[in-house]
Amino acid sequence: MSEPILRIEGLTKVYPGGLKALDGVDLEIRKGEIFALLGPNGAGKTTLIGAVCGIVRVTGGSIHAFGQDMAHHWRSARRRIGLVPQEMGFDMFETVERGVAYSRGLFGLGPDPARIEEVLRSLSLWDKRKEQIRALSGGMKRRVLIAKALAHDPELLFLDEPTAGVDVELRRDMWRQIDRLRDQGVTVILTTHYIEEAEEMADRVGVIDKGRLLLVDDKDAIMARMGRTEAHFRLAAPLSAVPDALCAYPLHLEDGGRTLTYRGGDGSGKGKAEIAAVAQALAKADIAYTGLDQKESSLEDIFVDLVEQTKGVPA
């Protein structure tokens, strides 16, 4: 495998006041991938991004970008990194066009009106280029942040909750943007609370909580390993125990015996087959049911599970 575009080792951040926002994070990002960092509020996502981008001073650990130690080669590395922050921060009185051109210059590139036009058009900002940023809607402002980050053609792009507070349509639009970046070979690291987003966009997912990376894997592998199929049979008459004929399956009774619940499978179809078998066995045993819900657990459930699992473990 080729050299990772970003290698984080033992990254620790203790804020003044003693809060440990990052606790020995190890992470490798592959060139060209879309990586989603998933975690609840205060997990340390923004801190992790800030540490790579120079916003946060780290307490310990090392960061290598493009094969070079960022502590020494920050100048050349930062030229190739873009950041779309979670919080909006602009000079509100500046026009869109000027703001984006400024960002390009700040990163050491010469003016390139054609490139700026391309970026603004791709984000549907071209018509607004002469407007002051304060006159734009929230979603448009967010796009300006993205345009600013793209103005210097970064190879590695951080998107800190790009779709927070953005309506559904704009969110889908954002996903298309990210797809386009992927096609251009840009490596993207995004953070999100929306599991849907990670599922839709990411090649790999990392789950972070309380400053610790709990899990990093291919999205599909996570689904396969952790993926569970769940089915609820609503019974016509309550049962007091799972019938012997069915004891081979992972079943239990809920809701005072009125619901027979199946939880099992491995995300590869085994669950669905077993549920079909359970349905047949119920028919054979003359146990009637009035309804059946079935679902595959999402990354969300996995995530909640993981966070639950680690709750008892002292940090």
């Binding site: 981008c53 120079g54 916003i55 950041l83 919080e87 960002s103 700040l106």
Partner: peptide, 9 residues
């Protein structure tokens, strides 16, 4: 305003 992030990065 928070715009300092850009300078820092």
């Amino acid at each position: 305003t928070g715009a300092i992030y850009e300078l820092l990065s």
